[in-house]
Design a protein around this nucleic acid. Structure first.
Lengths: 123, 123
DNA sequence: TTCGGTAGTTCGTAGTTTGTGAACTATTGG
DNA sequence: CCAATAGTTCACAAACTACGAACTACCGAA
């Protein structure tokens, strides 16, 4: 097994971050990692969506977040401890990540609230 | 030729926007459209990058921006007049797009400035 | 030590998306 | 009509993605 690759701050790109966060599942993962006090394991996210995410897919999502520079993953025994690289990132990219996550969150709320209120073209 | 499809505001998604703007060329295009006073044509962007963008590729980029809901394109004679849907978008998504564009811009500046100053692992 | 379970990774593959040249459509001007 | 210009669509290769199956890594118990 290869060691986990983490890009240095200088190698992190805006396009990499945006691509990683253009997937709602990944945005959701990052948001939850940020909210959490300590580190989060990968398997904490198997049931995060409406239907369960296969663990191979989840592994790829974590790899994407890691290689975009958004999270840091450390092996602790059997599991991976994932933390957000938020300080470095916001020092370099400003409010980029937080506004992306805020927008995703707002959209989720909208979906929950709107299933009845929206959804009609001639309301 | 099909008419140009523009999603209604309600059909615009965060992931769509982020995916569209995760490409630096598209981000650059949108930024230039926003900066411009009037509308911009597609062919104004053929030479925007270090190497010329093929026009079929450019057409796809505009389609991506349009279908993500970021721009509005109207046929005027032979050409397309592209304008940003910034008001609607920011009313719905807040500072999302502007912070993405700001981040891209900052990164460009960094690239121009940093070719000498950065780029060494052991400085 | 070996076995069993848990946590993630890698592989193989089917399906999707993307970039691009070639061919096409639409509009304007002679 | 023809030619030129602006952009679109088609076709196809290359790159990417999701996911089941098989694998690796680690820990605890026997």
């Amino acid at each position: 097994m290869r060691p986990l690759y983490h890009p240095s701050l200088d190698d992190i790109t805006v396009e990499g971050i945006l691509h990683a966060l253009s997937d709602p599942v990944r945005a959701h993962i990052l948001a939850k990692i940020l909210r959490a006090d300590g580190a989060q394991t990968c398997s904490a996210f198997l049931e995060i969506s409406d239907r369960p995410i296969p663990k191979s897919t989840l592994s790829q999502h974590f790899k994407a977040l890691r290689e975009a520079g958004l999270i840091r993953s450390e092996r602790k025994g059997v599991e991976l401890h994932n933390t957000a690289r938020c300080q470095e990132i916001s020092a370099r990219f400003g409010p980029l990540v937080s506004s992306v996550l805020a927008a995703h969150l707002a959209q989720e709320h909208r979906h929950k609230a709107g299933a009845k209120t929206r959804r009609t073209k001639r309301g």
